[in-house]
Design a protein around this nucleic acid. Structure first.
Length: 595
DNA sequence: AGAAGTTGTCATAAA
DNA sequence: TATTTATGACAACTT
């Protein structure tokens, strides 16, 4: 928590990740008192390298132990300690991929045990050449020996000897090893050796059996991944085990690419626990490419299909692309129709042609003007005669009729024409035709009106008249066009009118609500005022009585409020008026002196 | 089946 | 005068 507070500029996600990694560091002994983030990052990198080196060292020890144990077991199985054959033997006798990989791996593992210069020297001398006088060379010999003799009596000596190179500075070691392996892989001898192994492997690693063949490799990697070189060799080996599927002549390129790959990748990352998965995924991708016979097929992404204009694409090669589309639903149906659902461009036709099911296609085929009407929204209509001729003659009369009777008949006829598709698709079709083709659109289509209903309705008068003058229309067409325009405008007007009406209703309801609120407020205010008035009256009455109690006559007697009343004139004078003798007003000019 | 809501259309008046 | 707009009324259709 303190750390998170310190690194406020980091996002929470980053902080979580950092915290997790930091905790790993702590577990590995990293000092947590370093709270500065940058410093911590540097520290973290260093620590991570240390950690990886430590892990490698531990793995190395473990794998060496395992190897020793395995070899001992194997010794028990074979019952003999087979002396190392000549170094060239494994290359010649490597009959199975397992042997190949093991062999290679041991060659490379060997490099971990010896110094790079020694290894280079060894490899430069036509691959493994024994140098009995050197302990690492002895190890090398042991490792280079064929897999059948993997377990050698010298192997136990590996344990005491291996820690020395591991205890080198980790960074330099890993870097040296990387470079060493790059150079090793670039050695012609080694490549030739690998080439030969691959050729051997090619016989057995035919792709149906690839997994079987490679599985032992992975298990072996796990055994030998303790050493960088072993891991690298395993990784590269796995890469190259696959490559022979292409052509043996490509091996050098593959080796180079593999080496480059190794150089580009962080060794430490590669040999984490996931490296096998990475390998397998990479291999699978490669394998799939190789197996498909189109090495770069994966590069042919759907985007390439999108790049083809639908019309071109489908005009050019419909079957091929149809196959592509059946493979992925996201093909064109995602590209064109979703992007522009209203577009009546060829893309839509593509969508309709290929995205719909067969039944839907049938419906559209039988729906007079479903697809064509979509075109007609944009392009001037050129209707197919077979659809039009059936109804145009009878409807041409109807368009001249403005009586009620023909209207209904006209509508019914339109509906009949749209319902004429058979009983099975009636409901779906009806909805669809409603959506796609209004009555006037249907009528316009039937009369071959050469512009769209939208144009007829929405063009300004001048443009509309100009458009009409440009086309020679018969009476029926002119009448229909006028009706369409009138109806269309009236439809919009009706919609606006209803909308306005609803808005008015809503506004009136709102006004009603506000007026109700106002009424409530006023009633409340009135009630409050009445209360105040009542209170003031009471106060006035009290004051009145008090004034009367203070009034005295000449004899010192007080006036009774029941006999007198106080009245104020317009000039402010106050009079004491006797209630009984109202008839004659006893005017007392005496100014009441109120105490 | 029928009520309620929606939409298209017509008639008409007004702009 | 022709066209457009607004609106009530009606019918068809949908929910």
């Amino acid at each position: 928590m303190m750390m998170e507070m310190e690194v406020r500029h980091q996002s929470q996600q980053d902080m979580d990740l950092i915290d997790i990694l930091w905790k790993q560091d702590i577990d590995l002994g990293a000092r947590r008192e370093v709270f500065d983030y940058n410093h911590r990052q540097k520290e973290y990198e260093l620590q991570r390298q240390r950690e990886l080196e430590e892990q490698k060292r531990q793995h190395l020890l473990q794998e060496q132990e395992k190897a020793v144990l395995a070899q001992l077991q194997l010794d028990e199985e074979t019952g003999e300690y087979i002396p190392r054959p000549a170094p060239s033997t494994p290359l010649q006798s490597a009959g199975t991929p397992l042997e190949v990989t093991q062999n290679l791996t041991f060659i490379e593992e060997n490099n971990d045990a010896i110094s790079f210069d020694e290894c280079m020297q060894l490899l430069a001398e036509t691959f493994p050449v024994e140098d009995p006088g050197n302990t690492p060379v002895r190890l090398c010999n042991a490792d280079i020996s064929p897999c059948t003799s993997v377990m050698t009596p010298e192997q136990p000596s590996l344990l005491p000897t291996t820690p020395s190179p591991v205890q080198q500075p980790p960074q330099s070691m890993s870097m040296d090893l990387e470079q060493a392996w790059m150079e090793l892989l670039s050695l012609p001898e080694l490549q030739q050796c690998m080439h030969m192994q691959m050729e051997d492997t090619l016989e057995t690693t035919i792709y149906p059996n690839n997994s079987e063949v490679q599985t032992p490799n992975y298990s072996f990697y796990s055994m030998t991944e303790g050493t960088n070189s072993g891991c690298a060799a395993g990784y590269l080996n796995s890469f190259n085990v696959v490559t022979p599927n292409v052509t043996p002549s490509d091996n050098q390129n593959h080796a180079d690419s593999a080496a480059n790959y190794t150089a580009d990748e962080d060794f430490c990352e590669m040999f984490n626990s996931e490296n096998v998965a990475v390998e397998s995924s990479g291999r699978d991708e490669y394998e799939s490419n190789v197996m498909s016979g189109v090495p770069n097929n994966s590069l042919f992404t759907p985007g390439d299909l999108y790049s083809l204009s639908p019309g071109e694409a489908f005009d050019r090669d419909k079957p091929g692309l149809t196959v592509e589309m059946t493979d992925s639903d996201s093909g064109i149906s995602n590209a064109s129709p979703n992007a522009s659902p209203n577009a009546s461009s060829p893309g839509k036709s593509v969508y309709e042609g290929y995205g719909y099911s067969d039944s839907e296609m049938d419906e559209m085929d039988h729906n007079p003007g479903s697809a064509q009407s979509d075109y007609s929204e944009i392009f001037p209509i050129n209707y197919t005669p077979d659809e039009i001729m059936g109804t145009s003659i009878s409807i041409s009369d109807q368009s001249n009729q403005h009586e009620k009777y023909p209207k209904k008949q006209r509508n019914k006829q339109v509906e009949e024409s749209s319902h004429n598709k058979g009983p099975f698709t009636k409901d779906k079709l009806k909805k669809r035709s409603d959506v796609r083709l209004t009555r006037d659109e249907q009528r316009a289509k039937n009369l071959k009106i050469p512009f769209t209903v939208d144009m007829i309705i929405n063009l300004p008068v001048d443009d509309f008249n100009e458009l009409m003058s440009k086309h020679q229309l018969n009476e029926a067409q002119l009448a229909l066009v006028r009706d369409i325009r009138r109806r269309g405008k009236n439809k919009v007007a009706a919609q606006n009118c209803r909308k306005r009406k609803m808005e008015n209703i809503v506004g009136l309801e709102s006004d009603l609500d506000s007026l109700k609120d106002e009424r409530e407020r006023l009633l409340s205010e009135k009630s409050k005022n009445l209360m105040n008035l009542k209170e003031m009256k009471q106060q006035l009455n009290s004051l009145y009585l008090e004034v009367f109690s203070l009034l005295k006559d000449e004899k010192g007697n007080g006036y009774s409020p029941s006999d007198y009343s106080l009245q104020q004139s317009t000039d402010g004078s106050v009079f004491l008026v006797p209630r009984i003798k109202k008839t004659f007003v006893k005017r007392e000019d005496k100014h009441l002196s109120l105490k």
